[in-house]
Computed example of a mutant assay.
Amino acid sequence: MRASNLTILTGMALFAAVLPGAAQATEAAAGHYVIGANAAPGAGIVPPEPGLYWASQTLYYQGTLGRSVQLPIAGRIESGLQAGFFSTAIAGLYVPKLDLGNFSLAFSVALPLQNLDARIFSGTRERSENNWSFGDMVITPVALGYRSGQNFFQARLDIFAPTGNYSTSSIANVGMNYWSFVPTIAYTRLGRNYDLSIGAGIDLNTRNPKTRYTSGAMFHLDATAIYDVAPGFGLGILASMMSQVADDRGGIAARLNGFRGQSFAVGPIARYNFQLGSAHLQTMFSWAPEFGVENRPTGNAFQFRVSGRF
């Protein structure tokens, strides 16, 4: 595959991991990863050509946590949750002009605009809120790639900054009010008409100073297999999982036995590459229905992405 095409695949892949979410266990049964968020073609590729790239991503997630389940929200214990989450984000990715041989280096930043519609239940009492706000900014200070023939490897660090609105009086916070540091590794193998990609990362979270609650580390794994069925058009399958590997701590976490969560998803994915004037664009759509869920809502995540180069 030509390097110019690789750059577009990577714009999608690097951006896949920098979308703040609202759909895992930990505080408020929410966090900085949405199931299937990193499942994308070219997940292991860092652009070999210098330049400035852009990507946009729209995500919708809807899920329900049963009324019998207690969860921590804004420093309180609530019962049950219905959540509808919408996010649209823009990311920029820069590849400096460096002679690194088979290695490549990139930096990126993303800012989402998000809406959260939340409803909780406490006995016969119900409370609902809706909130529009900019979410937590994501900075990738370093993404290092290596390529060898059809094989591509990537290692990067994503940092989620607490820039989104957060209030202990609200149940619909799009901001998490804590930092997350996410070391990630990924691999892609490109064939003439197929793409196999897999990536793994772990969310390491700081304490929320307003609730004194620390969400436990969350491991997540995303994989895709896509086959081109027509020129520029590919169909495939994604598989994702997340599993909390450390208990929540502080605040009311002990009363909830650490509130560890997990989720799995398997669903379809499609991509379409096309030319628009002199620009080469790639679009992608995916659906990640959840199963095997513990201590978090069970639902569906839908994503649409498009990327290109300035």
Rank of each mutant, 00 (worst) to 15 (best):
A254T: 05
G199D: 13
S4N: 13
A110N: 14
F85Q: 09
V95M: 02
K210W: 15
V174G: 12
R305V: 06
S108K: 03
M218Q: 09
Y194L: 08
G199A: 11
R305I: 03
P183Q: 06
N205K: 04
I8Q: 12
R296E: 07
N173L: 05
M241F: 09
H32W: 08
R309C: 05
F103K: 04
W54H: 06
R147D: 01
D136Y: 09
Q150V: 07
F15E: 10
S240C: 04
G84I: 01
F274L: 09
Y33W: 11
V182T: 10
F274A: 05
D248T: 11
A13E: 09
A161M: 14
M241E: 12
Y146R: 00
P289L: 04
A28T: 05
A39N: 13
Q82C: 03
H32R: 05
Q24W: 08
Y33I: 09
I90L: 15
A161H: 08
Y146K: 00
S133H: 15
A254E: 08
I171S: 10
L98G: 12
G292V: 03
T298M: 08
T214M: 03
M12I: 08
S133L: 07
W132P: 10
N102K: 01
I269L: 13
A3V: 00
K210G: 03
A253Q: 10
A17H: 06
G44N: 13
G75R: 03
G51M: 00
M176V: 06
V69G: 06
F310I: 05
G250H: 07
A230C: 05
L276C: 07
Q154H: 04
F291Q: 07
F134L: 13
P141I: 07
L116H: 10
R67L: 10
W54L: 07
Q62R: 15
G236D: 13
S79Y: 09
R255Y: 14
S104T: 00
T140S: 15
S263R: 01
T184M: 02
H220L: 08
Q150H: 12
S68Y: 14
Q282R: 14
L113R: 07
P20T: 03
F121Q: 05
N295L: 03
D222Q: 02
A270E: 01
K210I: 09
I202P: 14
A74S: 15
Y187A: 02
A55W: 00
V306N: 02
R125F: 15
A37R: 01
V142F: 15
F274R: 06
P41I: 01
A91W: 00
Q62I: 11
Y272T: 02
G216W: 02
R255A: 15
G216Q: 04
H32P: 15
